[in-house]
Simulated assay, not measured.
Amino acid sequence: MKLRDFGHFDGPVLLVGGVFGNIDAFSAFTGMVAGRPVIGTGDLAAIGPAGEEAVTAFADAAWPTVAGASDLAALEDLRDPRSSAWGGPDAPALSDAAIRALSALPTLATFVQVDRRYAVLGGGVPGQGAFLWPTSSEALFREQIGAIEEAVGPVDGIVAGGTGLAFHRNIDAHQWINPGAIGLPSHDGRPETRYAVLTAGDVMIERLTYDAVGAAERARRAGATEPFAAIYETGIWPDEQVLPDALRRKT
């Protein structure tokens, strides 16, 4: 487990997860940051049509981020990290420079905002592999919080990505914040993606509007299958197998 301290922040912090190779959404996000600090939960390259560009752009922005599950998977097999069960583009693997950038990312980090301490991770506790969803049981949240505090000490909250769905839950005295994904819509029929703003313990989940049609066309040019490319325009995931039953659309 690779640990890192992201530092101390007095003002609002933007929390961002799941770029997922969507450079169009990432460019829109960078355009509205306006100098505010950004902390990421990883998943930079996988699924989308511009994985190499997304890794490079995030590194150039010098925003602290942990490695997401898809980043770690890409490093394990060094195959094209953009391919997926949804039918991602058949594109060349990441460059050596992008692989080095992903390799440098921590798997778990901490930061302090005002007087509250947070842990940051890509999804579930590294080595345990469990992603937590809005509908996950409180027992599972407590189990994960315990494992995190065993690794980094007491925290007031956890910032974790992985699922692509933004949510905020209070578990006893802890906050659990998932900022969602800026590179993938929330399976709610809207093309906008999500990020979060953390201000002294207050969490706001925001929508990001960007050129979703352009992202879909980029995916098609990269060789994506049509159900995959259409995600950006429709806001609907073509495969719900990754979702808990309670979060699947009823048709």
Rank of each mutant, 00 (worst) to 15 (best):
L165Q: 14
I99S: 10
A200T: 09
N178S: 13
D80Q: 12
V120M: 04
A46M: 08
A101Q: 15
I177W: 00
Y195P: 05
A101I: 01
A215G: 10
A119G: 12
W237M: 14
E53M: 11
D10Y: 01
P81D: 10
G122F: 05
L184V: 03
N22R: 08
L184K: 11
F20Y: 15
S186T: 07
E226I: 05
F228H: 15
R169N: 10
G123Q: 09
A139I: 03
L75F: 04
G7A: 04
A28N: 06
P179K: 09
E240M: 07
G201T: 11
T56Y: 05
G129Y: 02
G18K: 03
H187G: 00
S83G: 14
R169V: 13
H8K: 13
I148W: 02
V203F: 03
G11Q: 10
H187C: 06
L72E: 14
E206I: 03
A45I: 07
G153W: 02
V13R: 08
A229P: 06
R117W: 01
A181K: 04
G180T: 01
Y118E: 00
N170A: 13
G88D: 05
I39K: 10
I205P: 02
I39R: 11
W237L: 15
R218Q: 15
G183L: 11
E52D: 09
T199E: 14
A91F: 05
N178K: 01
A139P: 02
R4H: 12
G21S: 03
F9D: 01
A101N: 10
A215H: 08
L198P: 07
P64G: 00
V155L: 07
G88K: 13
G35I: 08
V155W: 06
G153T: 01
A93N: 14
R190C: 07
F29S: 11
A59I: 03
L44P: 07
D24Q: 13
M204D: 14
P179N: 05
P126W: 00
P49W: 10
R248M: 01
G11L: 03
V125H: 13
R36G: 04
L184Y: 01
D239C: 01
T209P: 00
N22Q: 08
I177R: 02
A50P: 00
P92H: 08
V213E: 15
A54T: 15
R100N: 09
I236F: 15
A50I: 00
S83W: 09
A73F: 00
T225H: 09
T41H: 13
G146P: 09
D60K: 15
A34K: 15
D245F: 06
E150W: 07
F228E: 10
S103I: 00
A222M: 09
G31F: 01
Q175E: 14
A25F: 04
G162F: 02
A25I: 07
L105D: 02
A28Q: 06
H174C: 08
V16T: 11
L121V: 07
G183F: 08
G42L: 01
V159D: 08
S186L: 10
A46F: 05
A45P: 05
L44V: 05
R36Y: 07
D172G: 14
W176A: 06
R190D: 13
P37T: 12
G223M: 04
L105M: 14
L108T: 06
F228K: 06
G146W: 03
P81K: 05
R194C: 12
T135M: 02
H187W: 02
I148T: 12
I231Y: 02
G127N: 11
R116Y: 03
T234G: 07
G122P: 01
E149L: 13
G87L: 12
I99K: 11
